[in-house]
Amino acid sequence: MLHLYTDSSPNGFKATIALEEMSLPYRLHHVRIETGDNRKPDFLALNPHGRIPVLVDDETQVVLFESAAILLYLAEQTGQLLPADIQGRWETIKWLQFHASSVGPIIGQRVHFELAETVPNPAAIEHYRRLTERAFAVLDRQLAQNRYLAGNTYSIADIANFGWTHIARIIHFDFSHHLHLSGWHERVADRPAVRRGTTLPAPATGA
Rank of each mutant, 00 (worst) to 15 (best):
H3R: 13
H3S: 13
L4I: 15
L4Q: 08
Y5A: 02
T6N: 09
T6W: 07
D7E: 09
S8M: 07
P10F: 04
G12E: 06
F13Y: 13
F13L: 06
F13I: 13
F13Q: 13
F13H: 15
A15M: 10
A15L: 09
T16P: 01
L19G: 04
L19W: 09
M22H: 05
P25E: 11
R27K: 14
R27E: 14
H29I: 05
V31A: 07
V31E: 01
R32P: 00
R32S: 14
T35M: 03
K40G: 11
K40W: 02
P41D: 10
P41R: 10
F43A: 02
A45W: 02
L46G: 01
N47L: 06
N47E: 08
P48T: 13
P48H: 13
P48F: 07
H49P: 00
R51Q: 15
I52L: 10
P53A: 09
V56Q: 11
T60L: 01
V62L: 09
V62F: 12
L64H: 02
L64K: 04
L64A: 06
E66Y: 03
A68F: 00
A68S: 14
I70G: 01
L72I: 02
L72E: 11
E76N: 11
T78I: 02
Q80T: 04
L81I: 04
L81M: 07
L82A: 10
I86K: 11
Q87I: 12
E91K: 14
E91Y: 03
E91Q: 14
T92Q: 06
I93N: 05
W95H: 07
W95T: 03
L96T: 07
L96S: 02
S101Y: 14
S102N: 14
S102E: 13
V103Q: 14
G104Q: 12
I106V: 15
Q109T: 03
Q109E: 10
R110K: 14
V111N: 09
V111Q: 04
H112F: 13
H112K: 08
F113L: 04
L115F: 15
E117L: 15
V119I: 14
A123C: 01
A124D: 04
H127R: 15
T132H: 08
E133A: 13
E133W: 03
E133V: 03
R134I: 14
F136C: 04
Q142P: 05
Q142K: 12
L143M: 12
A144M: 08
N146L: 08
Y148N: 08
L149I: 09
A150W: 04
T153G: 10
D158Q: 05
I159D: 00
A160R: 06
A160L: 05
N161I: 07
F162S: 05
F162W: 11
G163M: 09
W164P: 01
I167C: 12
I167P: 00
H172M: 09
H172V: 10
F175E: 04
F175K: 08
S176P: 01
H177G: 10
H180L: 00
L181H: 08
S182M: 11
G183F: 00
E186S: 13
R191G: 07
P192Y: 12
P192R: 12
V194M: 07
V194N: 06
T198C: 14
T199W: 00
P201H: 09
A202G: 00
A202W: 00
A202K: 11
P203F: 03
A204G: 10
A204V: 14
G206S: 15
A207S: 12
